[in-house]
Design a protein around this nucleic acid. Structure first.
Length: 110
DNA sequence: TTCCTGACTTTAC
DNA sequence: AGTAAAGCCAGGA
């Protein structure tokens, strides 16, 4: 189980219609480095991980490295019921999903 | 192995 | 409110 795997597991736990931030994922797996979280998703952007449910701390989407374009990411979120504010950011006050505090490998299979 | 980089976040000016 | 710099730590060359 690599660090990336843990990131993907946490990301996969995000339900539809909800989003979370890189920083929250980072803390949920016991680190503070949000950049590695984003890096993990980047390394896996062609896989089945719902990276579109992961947004910046301010609710904005990835600038241009998204799995097919930020346009697609926004479209996916809208399809799941996530609404955007007038500034083009996700309303974290409604759709933010807290993964939990460092649950480590609780529900992560070996 | 060392050095550089990176889908980020937070504090300070 | 907007811009700049620091912090974090593993992957890739």
């Amino acid at each position: 189980m690599t660090f990336f795997q843990r990131v993907w597991q946490s990301t996969a736990k995000i339900p539809q219609g909800r989003v979370t931030t890189y920083g929250d994922i980072a803390r949920s797996i016991g680190t503070r480095d949000a950049r590695r979280v984003g890096h993990a998703l980047h390394a896996n952007r062609n896989n089945q991980v719902p990276c579109h449910r992961v947004v910046f701390g301010d609710g904005s989407l990835a600038p241009g490295y998204a799995f097919g374009g930020p346009r697609v990411q926004k479209n996916k979120l809208l399809s799941e019921g996530v609404s955007f504010k007038s500034d083009g950011k996700v309303d974290l006050s409604q759709f933010f999903f807290h993964l939990g505090d460092f649950e480590q490998s609780k529900d992560i299979p070996d």
